[in-house]
Amino acid sequence: MVRDERGDVAGIPVAEARDCMYDRAALSGSPLRAGRGCVVLLLHSPLGELSFASPGDERWTWIPPGESTGLRRGDFYREAAYNDKDGLFYFYVVRSDDSIYTLDLKGPSPVARRIMSELRHGDQPYRYLIHAPWGELLQAWRFRREYEPSVPFVVDEDGDMVADPSVELNTTELQLYKVDTHGQRLMRLDGLRNYALFLGYNASMCLPIEEFPGLKPNSAYVMDDSTEFMNFYKYNKREIGVWDIERQSLQSFSDASPLPLKESWLNWPAPIWVTPSLS
């Protein structure tokens, strides 16, 4: 079930929930790691709300807005990040106005605390929170080319109306910032030097290339994570590639791979990054 703008519960068919309710999730760690619990924080529709659960729970626990939690109605959270240095049940979330909250789930009820005030309005870029290996909190803004085809639907060979297969959603710019909670500002960064970012549906990562020599320095590995594009253009080509932060350009994986790749592997379902566990 979901809640409407008045907070009333509204039913939704299970088959449709995957397409219109779930946006993204952040994990506190692998659920297979022995001796540690796991918490999953879910960002979902209709108002960018938050819910959480642990393995074995029968249902999601909705985090209601209000004085008891510190969340406002219609907060429109866009990204969540977990930092293992802060404790098992401690997450960071960013709103569409770039304000940032910490979220503590370990007590009898969730508690949110704002650590960054509102900085902008609107929702033009896609926002990502990244915990840097050196301890700082970063924020990335990903701008994309708008897609407004004059004829969004075409007739296929069976006579059915389908989405125009030529429509794509492309990254045009990537901006990086260091989050300064003391000065209540975002400080623009010109690059990451010997580090690489991973951005997409998964929790964002920043990795040192000296430990992962196959990665390109000062780059961001990106995948499509637009819920609207995934649902309305389900079988269209996905943007998957390596963004050069200095040159502000993208190299597609299909262009970079030495192997012949078919375009079909680049469409639905949504692409994700896979982080193997060696423990």
Rank of each mutant, 00 (worst) to 15 (best):
I245S: 12
S252D: 14
M223V: 15
W243M: 01
L259M: 07
A220T: 03
F253Q: 09
Q248L: 01
L215C: 06
I240W: 06
D224R: 10
W265L: 11
L261K: 08
K237C: 05
W243P: 04
E228V: 09
D255S: 12
F232G: 06
N218Q: 02
P258C: 11
V222L: 14
K262V: 08
S226C: 12
K216V: 07
W243T: 02
D225M: 05
W265Y: 10
F229Y: 14
V222N: 05
Q251K: 12
S226K: 11
N231G: 08
E228R: 14
E228Q: 13
N231H: 11
L266E: 07
M223K: 15
G241C: 04
S249R: 14
G214D: 10
N218E: 07
D255A: 14
D224S: 09
V222P: 05
K262S: 08
S254I: 05
F253N: 10
W265H: 11
Y235G: 05
D255E: 15
P260F: 04
W268H: 14
E263I: 03
I245L: 15
Y235N: 12
E239G: 03
F229Q: 07
W243L: 01
S252L: 15
K234Q: 13
L259Y: 12
L250R: 06
D225Q: 13
W265C: 04
A220Y: 02
K216G: 00
P258R: 08
L250G: 00
N231D: 15
S257R: 13
E239P: 05
E263L: 13
S219V: 00
A220R: 00
K262W: 08
N236Q: 09
F232Y: 15
L215S: 08
S252F: 05
K234I: 02
G241N: 13
P213S: 03
